[in-house]
Design a protein around this nucleic acid. Structure first.
Length: 329
DNA sequence: GAATCAATAT
DNA sequence: TATATTGATT
């Protein structure tokens, strides 16, 4: 923090300088920030939850970490590839090598230039979940007492209910849209989403609901009636009228690319920093970084229509699983 | 046997 | 209501 790290390479466009400056102006100054050396969790609390304190980080450590991150980002930037299932690896990054740290990192997009009013949607800002990975206590869920052995907990205890946050859902929708209805089956979706801890069952369940939603929308679209409840989550979805048919027809390979409707620049790389994703799945030998996800190809975005309209500006984000076990099956 | 999907349960 | 689990089916 001593040094401002500019991640200019994330935003291709030049001329953002003003905005950057504006943005920077809003940042807290060094004095306002919690010193790195200060533990975020009071010792009592830590001991109460039997949290082993992380070693203190020095500025040097942090700098090193950001260097690593930057170089990782750069490396990947040039190594963008095709969105094959292999390339999509890793959407989630771990948090300090703690496999249970899958956490949600919204907030990030809070202040995207727009006036404070509209940006933060209907005031329903999902108050942040637990802040520190460690704090995500078992108490949040009715997860029973998990013995302090994480590995056993992984296989022994049932995983807590997954919450499909808008971010997660968005990723889901991205993947489904990308696959086309035809190949959007739970397993594939799960793989492409590459969210740690996400199971095929999770996806299947959500997919079922999503399909129901799409079906309803299809039926209702002409009637001009649109119910409201689902919209909270689903309204942001492309409602791919084509992807339903076109993809189903199967004439086109991956997606009917007839015309690319519109491309919404989405900067996926979540602004987090962690040298290495935790990814237990190392296969492929791919240097999976945080954004293997390059939805930038023209066809990736096919039926994206109005997403940007709603509140989903949150980019990096993950499952809000209080607890995630290493995914691998 | 694994995966999908719809139905059903929590 | 949202998500998980089950069971028939492929």
């Amino acid at each position: 923090m001593g040094k401002e790290v500019k991640m200019t390479d994330c935003h291709g466009a030049g001329g953002d300088d003003d905005r950057v400056a504006e943005w920077e102006a809003g940042l807290p100054c060094a004095d306002d920030l919690t010193p790195l050396s200060q533990a975020l969790i009071p010792p009592e609390l830590a001991s109460a939850f039997s949290i082993s304190p992380e070693p203190y980080r020095t500025v040097v450590d942090v700098n090193r970490a950001s260097q690593t991150t930057l170089s990782t980002l750069r490396g990947q930037h040039s190594a963008k590839g095709f969105p094959t299932s292999e390339n999509f690896k890793s959407f989630n990054e771990g948090r300090g090598g703690d496999p249970m740290a899958v956490e949600e990192a919204d907030e990030i997009a809070d202040r995207d230039g727009s006036g404070s009013g509209s940006g933060s949607n209907s005031g329903l800002r999902k108050s942040r979940r637990i802040d520190c990975a460690e704090l995500e206590a078992d108490s949040v869920l009715s997860t029973e007492n998990e013995s302090d052995d994480p590995s056993s907990a992984a296989r022994t205890s049932k995983r807590p209910r997954l919450v499909w946050t808008p971010q997660l859902h968005k990723r889901f929708v991205d993947v489904v849209a990308h696959l086309g209805i035809k190949s959007a089956v739970p397993k594939t979706i799960m793989q492409l989403m590459n969210v740690e801890g996400l199971t095929r069952e999770n996806v299947a369940s959500h997919l079922q609901k999503y399909r129901l939603y799409l079906k309803r929308m299809q039926g209702l679209s002409s009637e001009g009636l649109s119910s409201s409840s689902d919209h909270q989550l689903f309204a942001s979805t492309p409602v791919p009228p084509q992807s339903l048919n076109e993809a189903a027809v199967g004439s086109s390979h991956v997606h009917g690319n007839g015309h690319v409707p519109m491309q919404i620049p989405m900067s996926y790389p979540p602004p987090q920093m962690m040298p290495m994703p935790v990814l237990g799945v190392g296969h492929m030998g791919m240097p999976v970084g945080n954004h293997g996800f390059e939805w930038h190809n023209p066809y990736n975005m096919l039926q994206q229509r109005d997403w940007s309209g709603n509140n989903n500006h949150n980019y990096g984000s993950m499952v809000s699983y209080p607890h995630v076990a290493p995914n691998d099956k």
